[in-house]
């Protein structure tokens, strides 16, 4: 019910059809990584995947936003199938903050990731955090698909509460893989460039 409502509302307000430019919407284990400018990003990425793929894709969401509030938590966990991570975990010694993501990949499911770690205000994404690199190194067989989310910062900019109707697009690019002895910084730059190339 909430699922259908959310999907209908998303289509009505922002459209957000997926454009598969560099790869096909096939059921493979993948990490979709995208630029991040709006809270709508998570919902739009989820809505852009065909139902069969959507069922096995888990958006990685920040526990400090999506984990708070009864409705938001319900939407994140039950509707979007999100994996919540603790963004401030790196400073603590409570174990690896990426552990829930490794668990998801170990189950054979796909991830939707925003490697900037926070929302930006620009068209071009900011520098990527290292999470994507660690996931790619641990699971080399998982396809890494760059995604560009167009126009969402217009629909719900950082600091606003009410989304407005603006046509948005989700562009899926050509998968890339971590080179055998590729440096972390090089890889993250290359991944970021792949997202920018779709903008």
């Amino acid at each position: 019910m909430i699922r259908l409502l959310l999907l209908a509302l998303t289509r009505f307000l922002v459209g957000g059809q997926g454009l598969w430019i560099g790869c096909a919407p096939v059921a493979r284990q993948r990490i979709y990584f995208a630029n991040h400018t709006s809270h709508l990003d998570t919902i739009l990425m989820w809505a852009a995947l065909p139902p069969a793929l959507r069922a096995r894709a888990h958006p990685v969401a920040a526990a400090d936003y999506w984990g708070t509030g009864v409705l938001r938590r319900h939407v994140a966990l039950r509707v979007l199938n999100a994996v919540l991570i603790d963004r401030k975990g790196e400073q603590r010694d409570a174990g690896n903050p990426l552990a829930p993501l490794f668990a998801t990949l170990a189950d054979g499911d796909s991830l939707i990731l925003f490697p900037e770690g926070t929302r930006g205000a620009e068209r071009i994404p900011g520098p990527f955090k290292s999470g994507l690199y660690h996931l790619a190194r641990e699971y080399p067989d998982v396809e890494l698909v760059p995604v560009y989310l167009d126009n969402l910062r217009q629909a719900l900019p950082k600091g606003s509460l009410l989304p407005v109707p603006i046509s948005c697009a989700v562009r899926f690019g050509e998968p890339l893989a971590l080179g055998p002895d590729e440096d972390k910084a090089d890889f993250l730059t290359r991944a970021r460039d792949a997202v920018i190339a779709l903008s």
Binding site: A121, N151, Q154, P157, G159, S160, V164, P165, I166, S167
Partner: peptide, 11 residues
């Protein structure tokens, strides 16, 4: 929606 989607706005 089409009109305003083509005209980039500021926050």
């Amino acid at each position: 929606r089409e009109f305003l989607s083509l005209t980039p706005a500021r926050p």
